[in-house]
């Protein structure tokens, strides 16, 4: 679960923008919508798929693929331990 770590030269003006990879355990979801409602970046929507108990588990919304910043709020809030994020690091140069 460790993210990719990249060594950055000291002289380079760059900030690290965390990027999150979402993981979902569909069969644990009970459809409470906490993750969807309280995601600070509004990344998630209900899928049209159903799990075995008929709940629509969350998925990344179309067009929001780069929005997750791996804050992990969904992970700790989810009552069912059905979702988590891992940080992947990309670099963006800033002027």
């Amino acid at each position: 679960m460790a993210g990719v770590s990249v060594r950055q030269p000291l002289d380079r003006k760059a900030v690290r923008i965390p990027r999150g990879q979402l993981y979902i355990i569909p069969e644990r979801c009970k459809g409470c919508r906490f993750c969807i409602d309280f995601c600070p970046r509004d990344v998630l929507v209900e899928t049209t798929e159903m799990n075995a108990k008929g709940y629509h588990y969350p998925v990344v919304a179309e067009g929001k693929e780069d929005e997750c910043i791996a804050c992990q709020f969904c992970s700790i809030l989810c009552p069912e331990f059905a979702i988590y994020t891992e940080e992947t690091v990309e670099e963006e140069s800033v002027e």
Binding site: L22, Y23, V59, Y84
Partner: peptide
């Protein structure tokens, strides 16, 4: 990045 469907959670380490 789209979500990845998995079967376990890192916090499972503290659960039965």
């Amino acid at each position: 990045m789209p979500e990845i469907l998995v079967e376990a959670h890192p916090i499972d380490a503290v659960f039965r």
